[in-house]
Nucleic acid binder design. Structure first.
Lengths: 233, 233
DNA sequence: TTCCTTATAGTTTATTTGACTACAAGTATA
DNA sequence: TATACTTGTAGTCAAATAAACTATAAGGAA
């Protein structure tokens, strides 16, 4: 499938689209990235970033391209959620959409609404409402996946700044899993995993005892990934 | 999307198909259901049961229909794996396929090759080779999912006969996870979960001490599902 | 200096694992 | 009939883990 003209390359598949659930974390809140559409039947309504797939690209590539085009975000790890295929999910025709999701540090990316998007913004997950089509369902499945995943893989670190305190990390878990935890126990368990590298630095500008800062250690992460582990706190 | 003629109902989507990975378990071996195609470009080659999706049905419905048409198996719980979207996966045109998987008791179903299938049969997973298109990859992903799932949900019971011994169950785990286990410890752990109902029956026609038979208890299963659990043995 | 908040260390008890040993209940065979 | 053999089932024990706490340290703020 090479040697195609530019127009041919941009030919899209008819009945399949992509939609992305992008999670971020700020000020103790789990957030999701939404776009207000600038054209089409969903004009001026908020929904997940997504769109049509070129005939020449994989869905993984399509997800990355669409996200860049719509929001300015690029080079992130998008994982497939699943296909959403209710025959009536899209009002104009029969369209199956493939959901993707990702976790990113909000601070690392500048949002920039692309050509077909009127606006891009982060919304607290707990306050999202009135999404187009079945996007609420896709978000819900994304959230479920995130909750399951965070208990089995240390993916939470993708949501925090480079340097963070143990309490920030614990709050992230509390927010995502929706339950309170015990500080000393959390400390002990997470430190024993050797997943965090302590830094010779402390928090600044806090009105109480400053906590030590830590960094995520990608090497131990790889080892843990292979032998499997349990993050149930 | 109602009030359509029969021909309209059978119109299919152009670039999407379904493929099913159906696992069974017999004589200590994990098996997978394959069909030898009777027509099309994959005629006479073995592959996963699958096919085209009607415009009026969800992918879940399509998976069930196709499985029935091709193999005679119906009313089973099929779970979606994910979409497979390599632009070159299908030689004739750009087609994305959505994988499904299921676990069934082989004894409960009679195989019957449908109109477009020349033959249907169970194959030991360890001995499968030369599947059409990217079906080997789909099978592999299905197997990975099975291994992950069986550690977190008591799905293994779908593969055993109604009444089974603890050793049979342990062998199932050993086969799927590919590692040996300790009998007494396995007993203790699985029994404590209250997931099995002991029967007043024993094995028959065995040339050694007969083991007690157990049954799966769907009620406790529901409870366990909700609060989550860990089947790591 | 005292109070308040958060960080961090440590204790205690119950529970869970993993690696074993021991014995029971059958069948096969000598 | 006795003995060996195979598999089932019960129990032991030490080590690791988890959950619920208590206690103390380190700051800033009043």
């Amino acid at each position: 499938m090479n040697n195609l003209s530019s127009a041919e390359k941009k030919a899209t598949l008819e009945s399949i689209t992509i939609d992305c659930v992008i999670f971020g974390f700020k000020a103790g809140n789990l957030e999701v990235l939404l776009v207000r559409h600038g054209e089409g039947i969903s004009k001026d309504k908020w929904g997940l970033p997504g769109g049509w797939i070129y005939k020449t690209e994989s869905t993984d590539d399509a997800a990355n391209r669409l996200l860049l085009e719509l929001t300015g975000i690029k080079d992130i790890y998008l994982e497939q959620l699943r296909a959403f295929s209710d025959p009536d999910r899209f009002p104009l025709s029969r369209v199956i959409t493939i959901g993707y999701y990702a976790l990113i540090k909000e601070e690392d990316y500048d949002l920039k609404a692309g050509a077909t998007a009127a606006e891009v913004a982060w919304f607290k997950v707990s306050q999202v409402k009135d999404l187009i089509y079945d996007h609420a369902q896709i978000l819900e499945i994304g959230l479920k996946r995130l909750r399951r995943r965070i208990k089995q893989e240390p993916i939470g670190f993708n949501l925090l700044p480079q340097k963070f305190t143990l309490l920030q990390l614990m709050h992230l878990y509390e927010e995502i899993l929706g339950k309170e935890m015990d500080k000393p126990n959390f400390r002990r368990k997470i430190l024993k995993m050797n997943l965090l590298t302590p830094l010779n630095e402390k928090e600044k500008d806090v009105s109480h005892r400053a906590a030590k800062l830590y960094q995520f250690n990608p090497e131990t992460y790889q080892q843990l990934l292979e032998k499997g582990f349990n993050f149930e706190f």
